[in-house]
């Protein structure tokens, strides 16, 4: 009997670059913008309530050209990046520690879970009292927002490691390091990546709120400042920026996810 074959099995059916598949996510937004433009052109709503998409696009272009938008973007981007990295790394380390050690779990986890139930935004007044309105308090807020999704998911990912595979690494005498890199981490990766996605979302959220109180630069400030002067078109530019940035960071993680988790044998719809 021969069960051998020279053909390596197809790991992934090659997807055709179908035009309709590429366009399908755009149908709903384009329809809304079209309708919106029509409403504005017919002057059904006052422009300071709902400016026309063309007007928003023009403002967007103007702010881009005079460098104002880029300036706000860099300031906000820096805050999110530093805050996210800080929160994510602390979350990763604590998640690993509590995931591995039952003792550490019992010592650390109950307090963290209690802290987690406090609405993050309720801490902002306290942070302003403690750290003022400077960069430090903002970055710390963002870090806190990014911390919990990562911590919870890393912990969960480690606890979901298959006990049967763990037994195999014992029989094959894996070192602790090998066990961590070849069993625990790959196995926890779906949860870790989910944690990163949720943490990025939380980071942007906390950023906007923290930028709306006491600062002189950043996308959140730009929106807040425009509101004060009833510049609704600039408010919309800010919203579009957040939508784009959020989508961009999410897609980035999603791309990594698809690459790293291609071994997964799950329902793909």
């Amino acid at each position: 009997m021969t069960l051998t074959t020279k053909n390596i099995p197809q790991t992934q059916a090659k997807k055709k670059l179908d035009l309709s598949v590429m366009l399908s996510p755009w149908i709903v937004p384009l329809a809304i913008v079209g309708l919106w433009q029509m409403i504005s052109s017919l002057k059904l709503v006052a422009p300071h309530i709902l400016p026309a998409p063309t007007k928003i696009a023009a403002t967007f272009w103007l702010l881009l050209a005079n460098g104002e938008l880029l300036n706000h973007l860099v300031v906000s981007g820096e805050r999110v990046l530093v805050g996210f990295l800080l929160g994510a790394s602390v979350g990763l380390v604590l998640g690993i520690v509590t995931g591995f050690s039952k003792l550490m779990q019992e010592i650390v986890d109950p307090s963290l879970q209690m802290l987690r139930t406090v609405p993050l935004l309720a801490l902002i007044p306290l942070f302003i009292l403690w750290f003022g309105v400077g960069e430090f308090g903002k970055v710390l807020m963002i870090a806190l927002g990014a911390f919990f999704p990562i911590y919870v998911n890393v912990f969960l990912g480690i606890r979901l490691v298959n006990i049967q595979l763990y037994e195999v690494t014992g029989l094959l005498q894996y070192s602790f390091k090998k066990r961590l890199t070849t069993l625990i981490m790959p196995s926890a990766m779906p949860n870790i990546l989910l944690g990163i996605r949720l943490a990025l979302g939380a980071s942007w959220l906390v950023l906007v709120v923290s930028e709306m109180m006491g600062t002189s630069a950043g996308l959140g400030y730009m929106i807040q400042d425009a509101r004060a002067y009833s510049q609704t078109d600039i408010v919309f530019v800010g919203l579009v920026m957040f939508a784009l940035l959020g989508k961009l960071s999410d897609s980035l993680v999603y791309t990594i996810e698809r690459k790293v988790l291609k071994w997964q044998d799950t329902f793909k719809g």
């Binding site: 037994e167 195999v168 014992g170 029989l171 094959l172 894996y174 196995s187 071994w263």
Partner: peptide
């Protein structure tokens, strides 16, 4: 305790789903 002198085969293959056949065999 376990040692490499004694190989063990379970009823389930217990392979690492994220590793290819050759990497599963190589293990650590």
């Amino acid at each position: 305790g376990p040692s490499l002198q004694k190989g063990f085969i379970f009823q389930e293959p217990r392979l690492f789903p994220w590793l290819t056949v050759e990497k599963n065999i190589a293990g650590d």
